[in-house]
Design a binder for these strands. Structure first.
Length: 659
RNA sequence: GCCGGUUUAGCACAGUGGUAGUGCAGUCGAUUUGUAAUCGAAAGGUCGGGAGUUCGAAUCUCUCAACCGGCACCA
């Protein structure tokens, strides 16, 4: 493109129109040249895709878009500015508090502060009030570039050690940018809106939490204040409502309300499954078992307690033993006051298995395997124990004892792709059956530190990539994110309220077959190393059930519902008929309960609805005479009457598991 | 593991130094009811564990634990 004689530049607008401006024109000037109202509404500008300050000069040809409150981009700006306002408010109210960093996050922002006295949510009212004052005052954001050493000195003198450290660690080439809002200023990359006024009023502080400086558990613990900010009060209200809704589907709450399971402190992090919860568990396990059988897997069961020598050999002892439960292998002392075990006991230790793979290799290693035996797919509902940090435990989502829908595929290098394809298809079918349509896939490639030759990695990565392409799955590639022992594919499902969960995984392992000396006899009569694929679809049965409960807000599909149907009577004159209905449903394989209590039908309907029973068969004198039932389904306020036989047929058909 | 919060009847919660309360559930009694809570009665507690301060502690202090919100961790 030829430049015009003067220093003019070409600015392309989102509608494709192109205009000429003098070089150094600012975003604000561009907005103003388009319309006064746009200039007034403008918050920032996108220059060649990059969000930038309105006040910055544009020096070359660019395509730009003025950002106003109507744009999604505004959220990012509002939240970032709100974080600055929060920091100023906190420093106004609590002198001596140091500021550190305050980025935007999904749905909001946070700011980390260093202060001897931690904040409490009781301080929120005062902080928010101060924030509103600052916004109301509406100081303009002013961008300045400072000399590095001066900036460091300034923050050090001010007692802001963290900010000084941040500047010291910035690359030499980086400008030291300072944003001023009235009296207050902060080191910041930007961009910001023209003034704090534009933060608006639709923000709210949500919670305080501890957070390590620079995310490093060896460094100081800071106090983090989380907030949310939106373009208007309506958006804020909607978000707060969404938070409340998410709280209502919390699987821990529903688990108690629906009498599915409990935890108690004598077995922290391990589930006590109640009859209803275990019904769900068994249905899930049965479903996966049928799927695996159909896909050519052989199910096995391996020991819970294994000598640490095997874990030493597999490498787990060296790497993960701090998370393993270790048991001395000795008959305990029966003397009441004596030590439970002698010191000698520690000569032999057993460990509860934290994973199944070494045990599966032991099964593979029995007898001589021929290339004709491959691929060998060994599956186990493997119960594993991991000594998770106390603070990590979270309902069913993070437990110390869990059951994986685990399997290991032993195959030849040339079988990687077809096995990966088959797995991707199996996984997609399972997720679809369980109600998850939206799956995000990531292919993690070789890290710096790794075992195995580059040729092997080339082959493996290409094998997985090709498999994903063949299955037609969209995927993202993450270079450097693979495990040291091989590349992997991670699958993330999205639930009904938009949260994502990483459940499925397919990991290639070049390490373990080597360490545990797995081999097979090839066509050439020589010994070869098999490739090992670790794979799981649900991941942990416990966790996946938690995800299912939250995804369905407790209203599980019929085949998983612990109680599928309740037969409820209107008065005791129908008791005899209700009993017949109940028996017939049981006969048809429906998990059914009979409710002949002396209660009003309103009471029964409410109770079973709250209990999330999917189908309610109400019988009174009328139904007894007609041989029918009045059906009321969960979530509906209406009911319809049907002949008993037909009603059972329909319910039984619907109650059939998807596979 | 770290920071903060919480812990009172089966569940949800009130009670800030002076005899432990409410609602629901459960039990008993009455009611026989047509699609989201019928009425009444009696009963139910080592106030998370331990130690301390005090004439006196659910309440104040210390300590341990569990849980909750984050952080760190997640083979």
């Amino acid at each position: 493109m030829g430049q015009t004689a003067t220093n003019d530049i070409q600015i392309t607008l989102p509608d494709g129109a192109s205009r000429e401006y003098a070089a150094g024109v600012t975003g604000f000037e561009i907005a103003e040249s388009i319309s006064k109202s746009l200039a007034k509404a403008a918050l920032a500008i996108r220059v060649n895709g990059e969000l930038s300050d309105l006040s910055l000069p544009i020096t070359g040809d660019a395509s730009v878009a003025i950002v106003t409150r109507k744009d999604e981009d505004a959220l990012e700006l509002i939240r970032h500015d709100a974080a600055h306002v929060l920091a100023e408010a906190v420093q106004n109210l609590f002198p001596g508090t140091q500021v550190t960093i305050g980025p935007t996050i999904e749905n909001g922002f946070y700011y980390d502060f260093a202060r001897n006295e931690p904040f409490s949510t009781e301080d929120f009212e005062a902080i928010e009030k101060e924030m509103r004052k600052i916004v109301e005052r509406g100081a303009a954001f002013e961008r300045e570039v400072w000399d590095r050493d001066e900036a460091i000195k300034y923050f050090k003198d001010k007692g802001e050690a963290y900010k000084a450290e941040l500047i010291e660690d910035l690359p030499e080439t980086e400008e030291i940018k300072i944003y001023r809002q009235g009296e207050w200023l902060d080191l910041c990359r930007g961009p910001h809106m023209p003034s704090v006024k534009q933060v608006g009023t639709a923000f709210k502080l949500l919670k305080v939490a501890g957070a390590y400086w620079r995310g490093d558990s060896d460094k100081a613990m800071l106090t983090r204040i989380y907030g949310t900010a939106w373009r208007d009060d309506k958006e804020l209200k909607a978000y707060l409502h969404q938070l409340e809704e998410a709280e209502k589907r919390d699987h821990r709450k529903l688990g108690q309300e629906m009498d599915l399971f409990h935890f108690q402190q004598e077995a922290q992090g391990s589930v006590f499954w109640h009859p209803k919860g275990f019904t769900i568990y068994n249905q899930m396990e049965g479903y996966i078992r049928r799927r695996l059988q159909d896909a050519g897997y052989k199910e096995i069961k391996t020991p819970q307690l294994i000598d640490n020598k095997l874990w030493e050999k597999s490498g787990h002892w060296g790497k993960y033993r701090e998370n393993m439960f270790v048991v001395p292998d000795e008959v305990p002392n029966t003397e009441e006051d004596g030590p439970v075990v002698s010191d000698k006991a520690f000569e032999k230790l057993m460990a509860l298995k934290p994973m199944n793979c070494p045990a599966h290799v032991q099964v593979f290693n029995q007898g001589i395997k021929s290339y004709r035996d491959l691929p060998l797919r060994l599956a186990e509902f493997g119960c594993c124990h991991r000594n998770e940090a106390h603070g990590a435990l979270h309902g069913l989502m993070r437990v110390r004892q869990f059951t994986q829908d685990d399997a290991h595929i032993f195959c030849r290098e040339d079988q990687i792709t077809e096995e990966a394809v088959a797995f991707c298809e199996l996984l997609q079918n399972v997720y679809r059956d369980l109600g998850f349509e939206d799956v995000a896939v990531a292919l993690s490639l070789r890290p710096e530190m790794r075992v195995g030759s580059d040729e092997l990695w080339d082959k493996a990565e290409e094998g997985l990539r090709e498999a994903l392409q063949q299955t037609g799955l969209e995927f993202r590639e993450d270079p450097g994110e693979g495990a040291f022992y091989g590349p992997k594919i991670d699958y993330q499902i999205r639930d009904a309220i938009g949260r994502t969960w990483q459940c499925g995984t397919l990991q290639l392992d070049f390490n373990l077959p080597e360490r545990l000396d797995a081999n097979y006899i090839g066509q050439d009569g020589e010994k070869h190393r098999p490739v090992m694929l670790h794979r799981a679809i649900l991941g942990s049965l416990e966790r996946f059930i938690g995800v299912m409960i939250e995804n369905y807000a407790g209203k599980l599909p019929l085949w998983l519902a612990p109680t599928q149907c309740v037969v409820a009577t209107i008065t005791e004159t129908a008791d005899g008929y209700a009993e017949e209905v109940y028996e017939a449903l049981k006969e048809a394989g429906i998990r059914v309960e009979l409710d002949t209590r002396n209660e009003k039908i309103n009471y029964k309907v409410r109770e079973h609805s709250v209990g999330k029973v999917p189908a309610l068969f109400v019988v009174g004198e009328r139904e007894a005479q007609e041989g029918s039932v009045a059906i009321r389904r969960l979530g509906s306020k209406k009911q319809h009457v049907e002949k008993l036989e037909r009603a059972i047929e329909e319910l039984a058909a619907e109650a059939k598991p998807p596979f």
